[in-house]
Write a protein that binds this DNA or RNA. Structure first.
Length: 385
DNA sequence: TCTGGGGTCCTAGGACCC
DNA sequence: TCTGGGGTCCTAGGACCC
């Protein structure tokens, strides 16, 4: 595959959850609005037909902001920020509870609309996709505009699109002119458009790598492109260093993956207050069993069996530990999952209070597929070694 | 008034096998 | 008698993403 000739789009819905909520509550347009995992922030219908919305300043709890409108972002309120902290910055911001069913509905709508124009789509979560435009007829600009219009017609929502020869660059570009953006560039544009950006813009360079690069004096992608390979190798290891060098030059051959099976399914919950293993044993046990039951239902509904059950917990000091156990036979049975996770729990120190408990199902196989039996016993073969 | 929930991928050591 | 050399599976932790 000649990367020069690929046309890969990255499409990102603009402030997706918040924008879906604005379709439902148009009177909130232009206001600072945040969406978060709050149970009692449901708007209340007044006798005069208007709605009373909860304000961020009234929030008490451990939730984080999931999405905010651009007006809220202007006040410094961003995704993943604690709601209590956000309330200090924007006490008057309107607060709405998350409604994943609604977001999934609009997600299906926008993806179907895109598929009507360009069918080769890779899902990257609920609000973004990659699209391979390479083999479609028509100019790139026209295709991208048609996709944006199709999304708007189907959902009433805007999106931002980047189109470049690969996923790495398109992901960066879809963010350059948000909201309602459209950025098209090719490899020749890299020095002018990509190199001035901070390294953090690269998908795969997170907070840790960014901090470490900063200690080496590397803050922009241009800095990274100019860094000696040996310096990267001694700081990041061979594999990651080689990847850093490639991405700094805009090189990425990864294909658009149109279908992928899940590798794991999990359920976890953060307690309203930290729980003690012995003192709060009853409460803990209740939550634990409920998580296992939900996980079993998820597996059954999606048609999977799991062979490796995992436990995750977070202590009050935020340290995370995990344990897992591989079973002789795959299962989707809540009791079996509960016992396996219970075995895992016994291998974990419980001297601190717990903040979070989670259960994970890995080693997935399809429950409709015939189970792979163990090999029938065979006559002893002579050793070959 | 700290910091959700659901995922993926990578690394690394030990067990175990041939 | 000085410890080869692959391969796979299991487990634990961590970085990163939406």
């Amino acid at each position: 595959m000649n990367s020069q000739f690929r046309r890969i789009a990255h499409l990102d819905m603009d402030a997706f959850y918040a924008s879906v909520e604005l379709l439902r509550y148009p009177e909130l347009r232009g206001l600072a609005v945040v969406i978060g995992a709050t149970h009692d922030a449901q708007p209340v219908l007044q006798v005069d037909g208007s709605r009373q919305f909860a304000r961020l300043r009234d929030y008490v709890g451990r939730g984080v902001i999931t999405t905010s409108t651009y007006e809220a972002r202007a006040l410094g309120v961003f995704s993943a920020m604690g709601m209590m902290k956000a309330a200090q910055l924007a006490p008057d911001a309107i607060m709405l509870p998350v409604d994943f069913d609604a977001y999934r509905h609009y997600s299906r709508l926008f993806k179907a609309a895109v598929a009507g124009v360009a069918p080769l789509i890779e899902n990257r979560g609920i609000d973004e996709i990659y699209i391979d435009l390479t083999d479609l007829p028509g100019a790139t600009l026209m295709l991208a505009q048609r996709i944006k219009q199709a999304v708007r017609d189907a959902t009433g929502l805007s999106c931002s699109i980047g189109v470049t020869p690969n996923k790495l660059l398109s992901k960066i570009c879809s963010d350059l002119e948000k909201p309602d953006g459209l950025t098209i560039l090719d490899m020749a544009d890299i020095p002018a458009r990509i190199w001035p950006l901070p390294v953090r813009k690269i998908n795969g360079i997170g907070p840790k790598a960014t901090a470490k690069l900063a200690t080496l004096g590397v803050t922009t992608i241009a800095d990274l492109a100019q860094t000696e390979p040996a310096v990267l190798q001694s700081n990041f290891g061979r594999s990651y260093a080689a990847w850093l060098q490639r991405v700094a030059h805009g090189i990425d051959e990864s294909p658009v993956i149109t279908h992928a099976e899940p590798k794991s399914i999990s359920r976890e919950t953060t307690f309203e207050r930290d729980l003690h293993a012995r003192h709060d044993r009853t409460k803990l046990s209740e939550v634990f069993t409920a998580l296992c039951t939900q996980l079993a239902e998820d597996l059954q509904r999606k048609g999977y069996l799991s062979r490796t059950i995992g436990l995750k917990l977070r202590y009050d000091d935020f340290r995370i530990v995990t344990r897992d156990l591989t079973l002789p036979t795959p299962t989707a049975d809540p009791g079996v999952i509960r016992r396996a996770a219970g075995e895992c729990l016994r291998r974990v120190p419980l001297d601190r209070k717990l903040r979070l408990l989670g259960v994970r199902a890995g080693g997935l196989s399809s429950s409709s597929a015939p189970q792979i039996d163990h090999e029938p016993p065979q006559a002893e073969l002579p050793l070959t070694v």
